[in-house]
Design a protein around this nucleic acid. Structure first.
Lengths: 180, 180
DNA sequence: TATTTTTATATCAAATAGATATATATCTTC
DNA sequence: GAAGATATATATCTATTTGATATAAAAATA
């Protein structure tokens, strides 16, 4: 059986926001969905083409004087229906989240404790930075007066990122105590 | 630049435990490292071959009467050094953990609240099951008297899984309250 | 004016995910 | 005791994803 094609739905969903070009979609995902999604151009551009082929989106080729062409995409009613149908589908099984730090710690007996503690420090630092990023996104969403319809949902997903990141930070503190 | 080859290190690491066949490695990762790692046979078998080619492991072909051949792998001192060198490397940037439920919730305004609440229920249920699995693994590690050297590290990684899963469960509770 | 950053599209190689094929052994249930 | 299910074990294949690179012009900055 073929894998679920999440890319398709992510793009359709983003076309219902202000994102209309492949570049804008990439930026949006990297900046505002980065607590639960990522994507590459190698996924975006072929998929945008496919969406148009399937009639889920339309494209407007904007040839500007001198500038390179710009393609603005819009979701169609058919595309909106496909998006809604997917959203209401039962959720699939929980994915495994691969974590390099935990993989190293799992084999931690092969290393001296001091080095392991340094790595936990570095990990905690990165997590704290991530938490700050999330706080910034939250402030951005809360201050932007437009997008009133989307905002509550966006804040909920952010809260997920904040809570799980905080739990990971707390774990770092506890783990360091255990090891030293 | 080529991506870090974590598969290599995961296999070398597991060869320092009781796992000696591709099948045993797969089972171990699916059962005991499933809170932070996953792997496919398509990664395992070619990589085991490669480890032998590189001199990081040796293989013993056990042709049993009637039974299909069984290949038992052992890590070499060279392989152990490669493993240790990798473990001590600075950790890389935090990966993005893709989450289907959050992607749907992000586009939640396209759906009625009741359906969304049901999906949050289903998600919470899966998280609770996951937490139970982790508790079971913890009991297994704590009761098994062998592996005294590895046990403290394995319990630390489990604690990570328990804490972040609990945070996600708490988020479900809070999110449902917000939406209803 | 020169350099850097941002906007914008496109493609490629390597790695991963998930499924399937094959074959035997063992365990369970009728 | 036979049938069916589950566990052991290796191998391969396709689709998808990742991360990098190429290209080019506009806009911002120094």
């Amino acid at each position: 059986m073929a894998k679920e094609n999440y890319t398709q739905y992510a793009l359709l969903g983003l076309l219902t926001t202000d994102c209309r070009t492949g570049y804008a979609i990439k930026r949006m995902i990297d900046n505002s969905l980065n607590h639960f999604w990522k994507i590459s151009y190698g996924q975006i551009y072929p998929m945008l083409k496919l969406l148009v082929e399937k009639g889920y989106a339309t494209v407007e080729d904007l040839a500007q004087d001198g500038k390179p062409d710009k393609k603005e995409y819009s979701i169609t009613p058919k595309g909106e229906q496909v998006l809604k149908d997917w959203i209401k589908q039962p959720i699939s099984d929980l994915p495994v989240e691969k974590n390099e730090v935990l993989l190293k710690l799992f084999f931690g007996r092969h290393q001296d404790t001091v080095t392991t503690l340094h790595q936990l420090d570095a990990y905690k630092e990165k997590l704290i930075q991530r938490r700050e990023t999330y706080e910034n996104i939250r402030r951005m969403i809360e201050t932007q007066s437009h997008d009133k319809k989307d905002a509550p949902f966006w804040l909920l997903t952010l809260d997920y990122g904040l809570r799980t990141t905080q739990a990971a930070i707390d774990w770092c503190t506890a783990a360091k105590k255990t090891l030293s």
